[in-house]
């Protein structure tokens, strides 16, 4: 099986006549972290629902590893990590119980876990570093821990395509980095990770592909090609706040020592020719050298 995710001219309309998504086309190959970027109401969650088979496109097709959505669902290929707001955190279940839910599809109808199920759950908990919390009730965890529990459930399900909805809301920066590191290892195993977000600044930090949506797929492909100022302007319209350095009170002698602070979301920074700027130089030495060559230093 070669993993891939392919949507061709997918149109989704709801019974009340509202067309949430029109002619959406994109393709993702194995081993990628892709960001699904768009404003609220742009059709991000509709696209997720279509990928999970909750809504049927009135037109177009979705193929997951060459299978239909229904066949993929039977093979438990698609795992979903819900948004924090969707979960009832007072629900009387433990961390272990939640991760075990990932195995239900692999059990018989009585849902009695086998030794193998328990081993997989235990292993998944260890991978996300939540083994020592397995007896906790889920409400007794921090934002990042909660996220990791649901990631462990996706792993226990052996989901090859993992859909994450706004994974970094309510998560502090250190945990965010831990989760990103985990997502990278999952990518390196060949999984497809599709992250729905409107947090622009975090996208260049961990995604390699981008799908820009606004009622349709505006653009999709590698980060550097798609995540441009022009495309984002198209996706976000007037909903994007901007800070132009050249028009600001910052002067030449301030150099690069200007600090950018935001309350929660990471800022997205474009350089002079509209190319993406990253937070860390480390690991991106190639890019720094390339830029140096461009200006002939």
């Amino acid at each position: 099986m070669i993993l891939s995710l392919e949507a061709s001219s997918v149109t989704v309309a709801y019974p009340n006549g509202h067309t949430a998504l029109r002619d959406a086309t994109f393709k993702l190959g194995a081993g990628t972290i892709a960001a699904l970027v768009g404003i609220n109401g742009s059709g991000k969650s509709t696209l997720f629902k279509a990928l999970m088979g909750f809504v049927k496109p009135v037109k177009g097709q979705i193929h997951i590893a060459g299978l239909s959505v229904e066949q993929a669902r039977k093979q438990k290929l698609v795992a979903y990590v819900p948004q924090s707001e969707e979960v009832d955190w007072t629900f009387p279940v433990s961390v272990w119980d939640v991760v075990m839910m990932g195995r239900y599809g692999h059990m018989n109808f009585l849902r009695i876990p086998s030794a193998e199920d328990k081993r997989v759950v235990s292993e998944s908990l260890e991978r996300v570093g939540m083994k020592e919390y397995q007896e906790r009730q889920i409400g007794e965890l921090s934002g990042g821990q909660k996220k990791r529990v649901f990631l462990a459930r996706a792993l226990a399900q052996s989901g090859q395509i993992i859909l994450l909805d706004e994974p970094f809301t309510g998560v502090d920066v250190t945990t965010e980095e831990a989760i990103i590191a985990l997502l990278r290892t999952l990518r390196d195993e060949g999984r497809i990770i599709l992250v729905s977000t409107h947090n622009l600044g975090s996208v260049p930090e961990f995604c390699d592909q981008v799908v820009l949506v606004n009622r349709t797929v505006l653009a999709s492909g590698p980060l550097e090609e798609v995540f441009t100022e022009q495309n984002l302007r198209q996706a976000f319209g007037g909903a994007l706040r901007q800070f132009h350095f050249e028009h600001s009170t910052i002067q030449d002698h301030d150099g690069k020592t200007v600090k950018l602070l935001t309350d929660d979301e990471r800022p997205l920074v474009f350089g002079k020719d509209g190319h993406l700027e990253y937070k860390d130089r480390s690991g991106r030495e190639d890019l720094v050298n390339k830029r140096k060559e461009e200006v002939g230093e």
Binding site: M52, G53, F54, R73, K74, K76, V78, A79, Y80, P82, E86, V87, D88, F91, V93, V98, M101, G102, Y104, G105, F109, L110, R111, R153, Q157
Partner: peptide
């Protein structure tokens, strides 16, 4: 009692229930 696990999952997270084919 027979369906208690499925019912729990349905109450807790219907989206996941659907995703695994219930």
């Amino acid at each position: 009692l027979i369906l208690r696990k499925d019912l729990m999952l349905f109450c807790f997270d219907p989206a996941h229930a659907r995703a695994i084919g219930l």
